[in-house]
Design a protein around this nucleic acid. Structure first.
Lengths: 351, 351
DNA sequence: CCTGGGTTTGACAACGTTGTCCAGGTTCTA
DNA sequence: TAGAACCTGGACAACGTTGTCAAACCCAGG
């Protein structure tokens, strides 16, 4: 490939600029800009000449320069815990659709539930000058975001509230959901209900535990602390927890599992046992209805979480200036069989 | 909020620049740049002064300007079909990890299996001057990408090959996988095997169909065209297809479903029937082992697809200049029960 | 043929950063 | 002590685009 010195010709790795287009079309720089952006006030004939030059050179506007000049990037950042978690699929998708509707691109990052990594990602996105941020918090202290928010980065938290700052947040009603799920088990005759949850550092985990305790208390039932297990959601820990509460001295007859990862492992453990144990899980998951018995769940609407967060975000970007608000979405109990199993006859359900 | 004229103070919606920092620290612009980028040749004392000014003003480097100046954006684009499809979760995740390891951010878009939308997204990413692109093609003509690739945008296709251009691509071995899956059914005594696939416009769909036909031919079995159903993967179409081949005159005794969406619907249909029908599905999915019977699948390694694509991409970004290559990853048959069901005794398995 | 109004066009600065290059100061060497 | 070598810091241009503003042009009406 001859390295020609004619600057207006395409060379490998060098992209033509508006200046090149202008030279080729024999017009001024600004006229090219006008054509590229569809601004009025250019003769049809000139438009055609410029268009031809654009096509001939394979010109594509450099949005970096445009962004620098205009100050707006038409992109929003989405930071969540793990892209591969099926719960976040519909949420991301909903945010993406909203972004698309507003002509914005989505920049994505997973925090892997690590506070430092969340911070690092969020600040990288701010350095890119994203117009807005949607964050599923991993950290419990978001004061580092204050200067950014002051500087005008619209920020909405979703699924969990931010720590130590006041900002928009969209949540599912974890407390009521868990309370309803546990009450459902109690209504089917259970008196000893186990709870397998996430680490207490996570807000939703705390709320769901509170829902569990409330439901038990409302029914006048005691909670044996051996029935409550909190910690990371890896299968090994969850398995051990399930075994402990099922094989102990006063075994539970039902289990409430506080998120989808826990539920899946719990199902695996319960299915292998002779004595059926009732189960209600927080979060719906695909194929829950096809298992036998079908898994009764407290479903949250992940897509709606994303939509609501995006709605809030774009309202702010459109200049609406309101106080930060908390939106709480209701959950839905979906009975499928596992939550309606009765306690073993003649078993510990006698008061 | 008083609109002070002191330009170096923070005002709402206006961010401090290096110039502001320089003024405040009493140093030159370039010195600030050096400190921000950790370049050598600045006295510790000066560094501290600059650092203080940065903290006081809440300065954060504007990456748009940096990108404009340097030409590299440290970001890569990922365009796939649907973020919410669980198959793409691990793939995205793997790409993200690789990006992170190389200090790059990930910009994300879903094509929704629409060629125009793919093109629009890809070109938007090119306008942003992403350093590289990873694309799950929805279109069958990617000539529109040629100028971009010539201009230096490293591009790797994944899961499906590009159309009408030569470029890197990472694929699962759909042909062999399907052939093995169908051979597995035949090995268990089936002679009438149905195939429910995706639209033929999709490369993997064609390959899997070819695998099916090859397995049947290799076993000397005829294929009745009523056993083959191709089309969109919505549940309604798949259900009808399954019913037709199961209730027809010469009903199939086994079904090969050519992707995860089809498999899930097929399981739903088959589970409701008295006569058990064998099933092997392409793509693994969560909980496949918990259904009864467990679903035998041809598993592809989605995460490895992503990793391999990212590896290829970053090799190119590191300057390695090779001919475009096709990488094909093997699939793995995972027997779980549904694929090992025998045909009904005394039924049509007599030759 | 000139004036006035509108339309079309282009020159120029600016966005915030980094690369180049040079000035001034310090330290070391002969 | 002079001169070289080195270190630190800053002035300036450039990246490719868009906003501002003024110049040039066109046509109709007088």
């Amino acid at each position: 490939m001859a390295d020609t010195t004619r600057t207006s010709e395409r060379r490998y790795g060098t992209r033509p600029t508006m200046k090149d287009v202008a030279a080729r079309a024999g017009v001024g720089l600004k006229t090219v800009s006008r054509v590229v952006n569809g601004e009025p006030g250019v003769t049809p004939d000139t438009v055609r000449r410029v268009q031809d030059a654009i096509d001939a050179l394979g010109f594509r506007r450099n949005d970096s320069a445009r962004i620098l000049r205009k100050g707006r990037t038409a992109s929003i950042g989405l930071v969540l815990e793990d892209l591969a978690d099926p719960f976040y699929g519909p949420l991301s998708r909903a945010v993406e659709e909203a972004a698309r509707a507003h002509g914005a691109l989505l920049i994505h990052g997973s925090s892997a539930e690590d506070a430092d990594r969340e911070r690092e990602l969020v600040l990288a996105l701010c350095a890119r000058r994203v117009d807005g941020l949607i964050v599923v918090p991993a950290s419990d202290d978001h004061r580092y975001l204050e200067p950014e928010i002051d500087a005008g980065v619209a920020t909405v938290f979703v699924d969990r509230p931010p720590g130590r700052i006041d900002a928009d947040v969209v949540l599912s009603d974890s407390f009521s959901g868990a309370r309803d799920g546990v009450a459902h088990l109690i209504a089917h005759g259970h008196r000893r209900v186990g709870f397998i949850g996430d680490r207490l550092s996570i807000h939703t985990a705390r709320e769901r535990l509170r829902g569990y305790r409330t439901a038990m208390a409302d029914a006048g039932l005691p909670v044996d602390e051996r029935w409550v297990s909190l910690g990371p959601t890896d299968p090994e820990r969850v398995r051990r927890a399930a075994r402990a509460m099922l094989d102990g001295e006063e075994p539970v007859t039902a289990v409430f599992s506080a998120n989808n990862r826990v539920t899946v492992t719990a199902v695996r453990e319960l299915n292998g046992r002779a004595r059926p144990t009732a189960l209600v899980g927080f979060d719906d998951f695909e194929l829950a209805d096809l298992l036998s018995p079908g898994v009764t769940v407290i479903a949250q609407d992940a897509a709606e979480l994303g939509r609501a967060a995006a709605r809030r975000l774009f309202r702010r970007l459109d200049g609406v200036n309101e106080e930060p608000a908390r939106v709480t979405l209701p959950t839905r109990l979906i009975p499928r069989g596992s939550g309606e199993l009765p306690p073993p006859a003649g078993g510990p359900s006698r008061s």
